[in-house]
Computed example of a mutant assay.
Amino acid sequence: MKKFFLLQLVIIAISAGTTQAQSSLIKVNVLSPVVRTGSVFYEHAIADDKSLQLGVFYTNFKADDTRFSGYGITPEFRKYLSKSKQAPAGFYLAPFLRYQSFKIKADMSEGGTSMEAKGSLNTFGGGLTIGNQWIFGEHFVVDAFFGPSYNAGKVKVESGDEDSIDAGSFSGFGIRTGLAFGLKF
């Protein structure tokens, strides 16, 4: 996983010398805190109509009697379709990959006895988002996106009952959505 992350950084660094000034963005998804997650993106234009984006998130929340904590990495390629604007502005399509790693703790009670089950979940998947990115002035960025995703993974039980640990919405089909605010530099 570290090699993949480093490869993404190398690609972004190499592409930095081939594009014009002010073609990098840093953004924060303002919808993420609703699900107790912090999400940050770095995007860099690599051509007039293309960019690469790398997103990372961290989460730590409790749903019912299950606590999820972990991180995810989302590399993404964006193809901007607006003829009148250059990347990174306008309407786009963005295929993406996603790796997620979580620790899971589930509190269960059975017959008056309280137990804790522990496990981990690693998923890999991807999807496609559509979105629009606006640049106001020279530096302020708003990015809205939405699309389907799929992640496959399996819970590895460390202790407790395997049936008591559920992957929840982190495995299977889902929706990836966001509203990000950021800066262009």
Rank of each mutant, 00 (worst) to 15 (best):
I104E: 04
G119L: 05
A167R: 09
F5D: 13
S169H: 13
S114M: 08
F146E: 09
K118N: 14
Q100L: 10
A144T: 08
A89S: 11
S24H: 09
S69F: 07
I11S: 05
N122P: 04
G182D: 15
D163I: 09
S149W: 00
Y42N: 08
R176C: 06
N122D: 11
S109H: 09
K156T: 06
K27W: 03
L93E: 11
G90A: 07
Y92C: 10
Q86Y: 06
A180H: 08
S120P: 09
F91E: 07
F96D: 04
K3D: 02
F77N: 06
G147C: 11
F181Q: 14
P148K: 06
K118T: 14
V142N: 00
A47V: 01
L31N: 01
R67F: 03
L93W: 08
A16N: 13
V155M: 10
L179K: 13
G182S: 07
E162Q: 13
D166E: 15
L52G: 03
R78C: 13
T18D: 00
Q53W: 00
V10F: 03
G137T: 06
A45F: 01
S51Y: 02
H44K: 14
L25M: 10
G125Q: 03
Q133S: 02
S171P: 05
V28A: 10
D163V: 11
K3T: 04
T59L: 08
A167D: 13
A117I: 03
I46P: 10
